[in-house]
């Protein structure tokens, strides 16, 4: 009983420290969208406050006489109290977060849910901002949005692009010279992560490995892909690059 009380405090404090550390190390960008980066800070502080309150209570009740009887009886009337099961379950995220190396979603996470080259539902509020951006400054998400809004794929012919993303290929890529420069779009957290990509064409591009990060520069041409006419980025240069600090794009 007493051991469990101490373990509860330890779990709260460690979980709080983990959340703060995830934010400070920047790994938080593998998990949630940038506009919510303050959440783990708030959560970490609350967890540590609850943990400290519990520790001070345990220390106080060890010394007994000084303890306020009101605090001794303090127990939420809403609950049955903490059980071993809830303690173990609450530790699961801590174990996953600490034991497994942190890694953002990549090509292998696209899985069977597929990857989008155009998608209207990506932006429910409707962004006109995309079109005021110079073509060279648009990211994968901006282009995918622009393709969705376009009347014909020809609109983009000749427009220059400069894109960073991970290399993605699936069974539709039978042409050795094509791959997709892809990103995950995340509005809230990984729960709504959506793979999006722009098709790239360059001779001899098979050497760029699945999931590796690349920077692609080139101009768009219309090509047939998977029996659709689609804008394809004809690459002038491809260079391998490090994963950006924030691997996801935020709609």
């Amino acid at each position: 009983m007493r051991t469990r009380k101490w373990l509860e405090s330890a779990a709260l404090l460690l979980l709080g420290i983990y959340l703060l550390e995830t934010r400070l190390s920047g790994e938080i960008s593998y998990y949630i969208a940038a506009q919510f980066f303050w959440l783990p800070i708030m959560a970490g502080i609350i967890l540590i406050a609850i943990g400290v309150a519990q520790v001070s209570y345990l220390l106080g009740s060890a010394g007994q006489s000084s303890t306020n009887p009101d605090l001794l009886l303090a127990r939420s009337p809403h609950t049955q109290g903490v059980t071993w099961l809830s303690l173990i379950l609450v530790c699961v995220p801590l174990v996953l977060g600490v034991v497994l190396p942190a890694k953002p979603l990549g090509a292998s996470a696209v899985g069977t849910s597929g990857i989008a080259t155009s998608l209207n539902s990506l932006n429910p509020t409707g962004s006109t901002g995309t079109f005021s951006l110079a073509p060279e400054n648009r990211n994968v998400l901006d282009w995918v949005r622009a393709f969705s809004a376009a009347a014909t794929p020809d609109e983009f012919t000749g427009q220059p692009a400069d894109l960073i993303g991970f290399v993605y290929r699936d069974i539709r890529f039978n042409d050795q010279n094509q791959f997709m420069v892809a990103r995950f779009a995340v509005s809230c957290c990984t729960a709504d992560a959506l793979a999006i990509g722009v098709i790239v064409e360059m001779p001899d591009s098979a050497k760029y490995k699945q999931d590796g990060w690349v920077r692609v520069r080139g101009k768009f041409q219309v090509r047939e892909f998977d029996s659709h006419q689609t804008p394809v980025l004809i690459a002038e240069s491809i260079e391998e690059t490090a994963m950006p600090e924030r691997p996801y794009l935020y709609p």
Partner: peptide, 17 residues
Amino acid sequence: LIKSLRYAHDEFFDMGK
């Protein structure tokens, strides 16, 4: 405040699972 935190503690474990 300390009492509130102890309530929050129980509720957090209860709902956390």
